[in-house]
């Protein structure tokens, strides 16, 4: 029984960590622009697919990872420059629709370029599971969890201690005020796209040895990441992490104890509950209506 419990927890935490990384990406861009970037899942896919492609070309894994993350960040910047900026900042809904369009383009481009097949990466430190209390934990899961933790710490440092980070926070709180004190909010927007693309790509690479990748993995990962972000409270970094882990864990326990058929419904049912009873999510900002 305990072994079973542990096994579900390991499975849930690993999957949850990837949702958390995706949710963080949503959060970053939402904060900078109030846009929900539905191309976030494609960043995850691009990271994994590029890493596979580069490793296939004979590039050593560490370089392939760095390069794939860098290219994804560049794609993020280009997306902001070519698709988001021209629309202007007025209509958030129009921007959200643009991001859906971008995601279709990215998915299609990768499909044509790298094909429809599924791909795997070798695990970073072997395939021998670590047995803890009768449950198997994959070394790659540790990589995912540790990297997610490191990313959260790094982001916290970035927002608290650096000027660029503070500028992003200021933009998130009040864009007009941020512009009035001389913050280049367009640049902030570009940086946030680059960052969230890089985060997504990193997550995508880390999970590829566990989950495989193909041109269309971004759809589900993006949706689950979005669900995690909503559950945690859109705009909250801590919320994204907790939301991601929560969604992953509940999914795993649902598959294990209830029925695996309902697993994919979990995050979306969770969204409904959250929106009914806690409209701003677990850690979202408490909004007050101005009368």
């Amino acid at each position: 029984m305990l072994a079973q419990l542990l096994q579900f927890s390991f499975s849930g935490l690993t999957v949850g960590a990837t949702y958390a990384l995706a949710a963080l990406g949503f959060t970053l861009i939402y904060n900078a622009s109030h846009v929900i970037n539905f191309a976030q899942g494609e960043f995850i896919m691009i990271g994994g697919m590029l890493a596979v492609f580069l490793v296939g070309l004979g590039v050593p894994l560490p370089f392939a990872i760095v390069l794939a993350v860098a290219v994804a960040a560049l794609v993020g910047v280009l997306m902001e420059k070519l698709a988001i900026e021209p629309v202007g900042r007025g209509d958030t809904l129009a921007l959200v629709i643009v991001t859906i369009g971008v995601s279709l383009v990215l998915r299609g481009a990768v499909q044509v370029w790298l094909g429809k097949g599924s791909h795997a990466l070798p695990s970073f430190s072997g395939d021998a599971p670590i047995l803890i209390g009768g449950a198997a934990l994959m070394p790659q899961s540790l990589w995912v969890l540790a990297t997610s933790a490191a990313v959260v710490v790094a982001l916290a440092w970035f927002f608290e201690r650096t000027l660029a980070g503070k500028a992003m926070l200021a933009t998130a709180i009040n864009r007009t005020a941020a512009e009035l004190v001389g913050i280049d909010t367009d640049r902030v927007l570009r940086v946030s796209f680059a960052l969230s693309a890089a985060l997504g790509a990193l997550g995508g690479i880390l999970i590829t040895p566990i989950t495989l990748t193909s041109f269309d993995v971004g759809i589900m990962l993006g949706l689950k990441g979005f669900a995690a972000a909503v559950v945690g409270g859109l705009g909250s970094g801590l919320g994204a992490i907790v939301g991601g882990l929560l969604v992953g864990l509940i999914e795993a326990f649902c598959a294990g104890w209830l029925s695996s058929s309902y697993k994919d419904a979990v995050p979306f049912v969770l969204i409904l509950f959250i929106l009914f009873f806690l409209p701003s999510g677990l850690f979202g900002p408490k909004t007050t209506e101005r009368v």
Partner: peptide, 11 residues
């Protein structure tokens, strides 16, 4: 499109 089937397999 599942990424993990270990809960089912544990069962």
């Amino acid at each position: 499109k599942d990424t993990d089937a270990t809960p089912q397999l544990t069962k």
